[in-house]
Design a protein around this nucleic acid. Structure first.
Length: 716
DNA sequence: ATGGGTCCT
DNA sequence: AGGACCC
């Protein structure tokens, strides 16, 4: 079934490509034929005509060229609390926010406690329920970042966060570079969804899914070893299917979608609302058109659907209903905003509001302060010095919710620029700017609330956003990036050729897609000058415990990428360009992967029983992995490269790659040298308290820093 | 519902 | 500034 197109589809494809003048207006009414044809996409396809076609119409083919793993952590908040206090593991645990249990552990679930249950109801079901307040999300954010960081640094640079407890990982290139050394590893690990013994798809996707299932298993094992957290994985060829199939075996398990079973998976969901992206309002529109189930959605004519929800939604919903999803896994960068909010029954006086705003603001600024001071706690590492104070918010937003019988959920907001005086202070690392910020918050407040009249608020939210790089090198960076773009373009062609050889695809001409501009994301220079996201409130020692994770979690997307990367075009990022990026990132992550396998010891063994499919085989899994993960074109560091820095100028730390260093703009080099000079004299001083805390894992830190610098070799 | 987030219009 | 979506 996977093998060929139906005659009908073939014909419409040919018509479409031969005469693209009437492509634009042609509707595909017979969607049932799509449903019944599971089609292989030779993923190198896109002639300009075909590209034009696919922009106007939903893809008619199932694209198996990518391999995606979706990781969904089990009852995340509850798990974090159980890690923090292992005694809770044996007890029914609920995480409480205000009046509700937002989530609970599986012990509590056996009593019938569920998510979003009122406290009173939960207590009725389970009188011994232990409740832990989950209103402060700092710890959850912290563990969430650790998870993303691990996946990103050990498996693929393409990791997309969804909330705190979900991550999509594009493992396409890891899979492509993996040659099974053992026939048994071609079998899917863990559960499968769909019947065995299907006709093999000629694109080799079944094998890729099988390899990915082993990678997913490895991911889950690493999450347990390193962080002590469990979760589910879904493995498929796009984000939609990976996410949906992962839910089929919960908790702490994994499910691989077998090619050809996507229709069964989609129909198994029943209601159209189960499709991610179809929310409350879309669902209402659909219901008004008599579309309730996913089968209804599949059957609905495109023109009817378009009339109800618009053409863009119609296209993506149609695609989704058949399990087709071409959206790329987009690397999540550091947070775009930081907010703190409080909800309550009643806030009716200005003083009360002021106090609440102050508390929220104070909490935000304290987070900023800890975040900013972190690099100093790290001690001697140059990268961290550069990264210091890299992000500063330019705008502040106040959101309130007024009590009203009609629209209880309605929020109002006003935002304004943060006073430049405060911005300047923050840039200097001074966070005692409560005064000026309270003044602007008060102005915003009075824009929404007439304080002369009586009022009744039920929520206040303060949000810092519109982060700006605090660079003193911005001119140099611009110069560097314009150069980097050219480098990227050259590299892209090479890797496309390489990918073509591996995948037996034909490469097309490399058009000047705007996506090229975002390819610099992977430049280690970009990452090097990445900005930090929010850090939770923590003690200094806590911060040190986590430093390893902080380092690479925040080495992602620049804010400018957010603007240049369009998610609205589902076809962007799916062509050869992203293939180029994939190729490169694979090499990077594989290099790091092998280092991890060799050097890493479990950092934090989880408490309690960890018996699971992966549990007992930890010791063995490294060996398995070595046989299994054989990379065809990975470029390992030569010993010369490794030691090259050691005989360089004394002013450059030994863990810094000189070649990379020299590629930096001159003034940046100068600034770095100055930083290092300052640091090395500081190191001589007796007051290094952090060094003992660091000494528990010094090699790890060194390695990470080295990775940082060695990365850009791959891009040159 | 809660306490966050994302992007688009 | 609000609205949609996600968890």
């Amino acid at each position: 079934m996977c093998r060929r197109k139906t005659t009908k589809m073939k014909r419409s494809w040919q018509e479409a490509t031969q005469d693209d003048s009437d492509l634009g207006e042609e509707d595909i009414e017979d969607w049932s034929s799509v449903a019944s044809s599971i089609l292989v996409s030779p993923s190198s396809k896109n002639t300009p005509q075909q590209a034009a076609f696919s922009r106007e119409h939903p893809p008619l083919e199932s694209d198996h060229s990518r391999t995606i793993v979706h990781i969904d952590l089990d009852c995340f908040y509850a798990q974090v609390e159980m890690i923090r206090n292992p005694q809770l593991r044996a007890q029914p645990l609920g995480i409480q926010q205000k009046n509700i249990v937002v989530t609970c552990n599986y012990v509590a679930r056996e009593f019938g406690v569920t998510k979003l249950m009122y406290i009173a109801d939960a207590k009725k079901k389970c009188p011994n329920l232990v409740l832990v307040s989950g209103e402060d999300l700092s710890h959850y954010r912290d563990y969430s970042e650790k998870v993303t960081d691990l996946l990103q640094s050990e498996f693929s640079s393409l990791v997309e966060r969804l909330g705190f407890d979900e991550n999509f990982v594009d493992v396409t290139s890891l899979v492509e570079k993996t040659v099974p050394g053992d026939q048994s590893l071609v079998e899917v690990k863990g559960h499968t969804f769909g019947p065995e013994g299907q006709v093999a798809c000629i694109c080799g996707c079944h094998k890729r899914m099988a390899i990915a299932s082993h990678i997913a298993s490895r991911m889950r094992a690493r999450l347990r070893e390193a962080i002590g957290i469990t979760g589910c994985a879904g493995i498929a060829w796009n984000k939609l299917l990976a996410k949906l199939v992962g839910e089929k075996n919960k908790p702490n398990d994994q499910t691989t979608l077998l090619p050809g079973s996507e229709q069964k998976l989609m129909l198994s969901l029943g209601h159209a609302r189960r499709i991610p992206g179809i929310g409350h309002s879309m669902n209402k529109k659909l219901e008004s058109a008599g579309i309730v189930t996913i089968a209804d959605l599949q059957r609905a004519s495109y023109s009817d659907l378009e009339a109800v929800v618009g053409s863009q939604s119609a296209t993506s919903m149609k695609n989704s209903s058949f399990g087709i999803d071409n959206t790329a896994v987009t690397r999540s960068g550091p947070p775009q905003s930081m907010s703190d909010e409080d909800s309550f029954k009643l806030c009716a006086s200005l003083n009360d509001a002021k106090e609440r705003m102050y508390n929220l603001l104070n909490s935000l600024l304290e987070s900023c302060r800890l975040l900013d001071s972190l690099p100093e706690a790290e001690g001697i590492y140059a990268m961290l010095m550069i990264r210091k104070r890299w992000r500063t918010p330019l705008t502040i937003r106040l959101t309130i919710r007024k009590h009203s019988s009609a629209k209880k959920w309605l929020r109002e907001s006003r935002q304004t620029q943060i006073p430049v005086s405060a911005t300047e202070q923050i840039k200097k690392g001074i966070f005692t700017v409560h005064g000026p910020l309270m003044e602007v918050l008060l102005v915003l407040f009075k824009k929404m609330v007439d304080v002369e009249q009586s009022f009744h608020l039920t929520l206040i939210n303060v949000c810092l956003t519109n982060f700006q790089a605090k660079s003193t090198f911005s001119k140099s960076l611009d110069k560097y990036f314009s150069k980097a773009k050219n480098i990227e373009n050259e590299r892209k062609s090479e890797s496309e050729q390489g990918a073509a050889d591996i995948c037996k695809k034909t490469t097309d001409d490399s058009t000047n897609n705007p996506k090229v501009l975002t390819n610099q994301q992977d430049s280690n220079i970009t990452q090097l000058f990445e900005k930090q996201g929010r850090r939770p409130l923590q003690t200094a020692s806590k911060v040190l415990e986590n430093k390893q994770n902080k380092l690479s979690f925040f080495t992602r997307k620049l804010p400018s990428d957010v603007k240049t990367t369009s998610k609205s075009d589902p076809h962007q990022g799916d062509g050869e360009l992203s293939q180029g990026e994939r190729d490169k990132t694979a090499t990077l992550s594989r290099t790091r992967y092998s280092v991890e396998v060799k050097n890493d010891k479990p950092i934090d063994k989880p408490e309690g029983d960890i018996s699971s499919e992966t549990g007992p085989s930890f010791a063995k899994s490294d060996e398995v992995e070595k046989d299994f993960l054989v990379v065809t074109s990975s470029r390992e560091q030569t010993s010369e490269e490794m030691s090259s820095s050691s005989h360089q100028s004394l002013e450059i730390p030994g863990n810094v790659d000189v070649t990379v260093f020299k590629s930096l703009p001159l003034d940046m080099q100068a600034d770095l040298l100055r930083e290092w000079k300052v640091q090395s004299t500081r190191d001589m001083a007796p007051e290094i308290k952090t060094s003992s805390a660091l000494s528990s894992q010094p090699s790890t830190s060194n390695r990470r820093i080295t990775d940082f610098f060695t990365r850009s070799k791959e891009t040159r």
